[in-house]
Amino acid sequence: MTRTPPTSPDTAEALQTLLTPAFIRQMEKLDIASRKLFAGTLQGERRSKQRGQSVEFADYRNYVAGDDLRFIDWNLYARLDKLFLRLFMEEQDLALCLLLDVSASMDWGDPNKLLYAKRLAAALAYIGLVRFNRVHLYAVSNGVVEQMPGLRGRRPIPKMLEFLARQQPAGAGSVPEACRRFALGQGHKGVVVLLSDILEKGDFAGGLRYLAGDRFDGYAVQILAPQELDAEKAELRGDLALRDVEDGFEAEVSISPLLLQRYRDAVNGWCDHVRQECSKRHIAWMLARTDTPVETLVLDSFRRIGLLK
């Protein structure tokens, strides 16, 4: 599902726009949180369900032959004349999967939704990487367009940024299909963050189940431009043939105050619908307006929904 990365002359500039130094400094203290504890493959900075080697005491159990003598609590043996083994919480790394929707509909709005999503993804990936989590990046549209799995540590940060920067709008998208493809290809458990506008004409809810269940701690960030949320900001007037940037379908409308009111109702209704569908599947949902600074979202909103700590 990978594709040749397009060489863009302004990649370097794009890198700068995704993460600013000031923002980076603010993010140093954050970490990815998970409402569930997942087993990692490598030792990381995260307490896992597994007992293992760390300084944090977890429990005692009787010694059986073959246990590592280093974990026998000799003080207890002296008092009780029995061998007990001290168990510690093992600290493991966490898988963070970022699903960046690059369908054509994301390349719209002022500020641009795709750019906004890239900045969010960059911020989350950065936090994940500096905390030694395994970060998997997926550019999705109607399936997975490109992926960059298994990044860890500070060293691949430029690579991650470059990956995000080079993502271009890629035709008609389908959130359910993207989720399905991602779920099939991803064997690790972990936190999944879907960054998409979720303007899905088909059965949107069906795709969400792939992000639900025990394997993933799902987050859906619905990114919408202010013009989408409030059509009056788009300054629409008169008789219009509105063409869908993805499927090319046209909606003929004659703008009237009544229609604008109906549109507002439709947007609110849709967002509410998405929130409810996510909620049913224990997927945390939040709405991101692209005119809200990314910093605000990362430093404040994401912490409130428990994605960051």
């Binding site: 303007l199 549109y263 439709a266």
Partner: peptide, 14 residues
């Protein structure tokens, strides 16, 4: 003619 991200919501409104 006007390009928009999705006609989903407009179709519903209309």
């Amino acid at each position: 003619p006007l390009l928009i991200s999705s006609t989903l919501l407009w179709k519903r409104s209309v």
